[in-house]
Design a protein around this nucleic acid. Structure first.
Length: 146
DNA sequence: CGTGAGCGA
């Protein structure tokens, strides 16, 4: 099913941005942040953290399988496949928490765009999540709203 | 519709 390839989020950057050599032999960096408008929404990927967001999982992929696959690239502190409380089935994505950021990067580079249960999975840094310790306050929305 | 975009009880 090529639908999985079409439904790829930001993970397809690897296929188009096949950089490696002959990138920019003149400018190692880009010293032009405030050019004119904001052509860089920076919404491609969240900040590097030990939390990983894995998408493209098969419906039959469970937390154990996810932890097993990601444990090969580093020590997985916590892994969870998001499932519905009422139905009980997987939502098709999950989260993997590594011990360090380097291991998280290894997990992304090692499992992003790979196959799992016959489906192409995509791994990237997860977004920050509000801790469940704070009780309800005003209708203050989360900062992670796009 | 367990037929596929996405961020978690």
């Amino acid at each position: 099913m090529r639908a999985a390839v079409v439904a790829a989020p930001r993970g397809l950057r690897r296929f188009f941005c096949t950089n490696s050599s002959s990138a920019s032999p003149s400018f190692p960096f880009i010293p032009s942040p405030p050019s004119s408008a904001t052509p860089a929404p920076a919404r491609q990927m969240a900040d590097p953290n030990t939390n990983l967001f894995v998408s493209g999982l098969s419906k039959r992929t469970t937390t154990e399988k996810l932890r097993e696959e990601f444990s090969k690239f580093g020590e997985v502190v916590h892994a969870r496949v998001v499932t519905d409380r009422v139905s009980g089935y997987s939502k098709g994505f999950g989260f993997v928490k590594y011990a360090t950021i380097e291991e998280a990067a290894k997990g992304i580079e090692g499992m992003d765009g790979k196959f799992l249960d016959g489906w192409v999975i995509f791994a990237e840094y997860a977004r920050p999540r509000p801790p469940p310790g704070q009780p309800v306050n005003d209708n203050a929305p989360q900062y992670g709203r796009q």
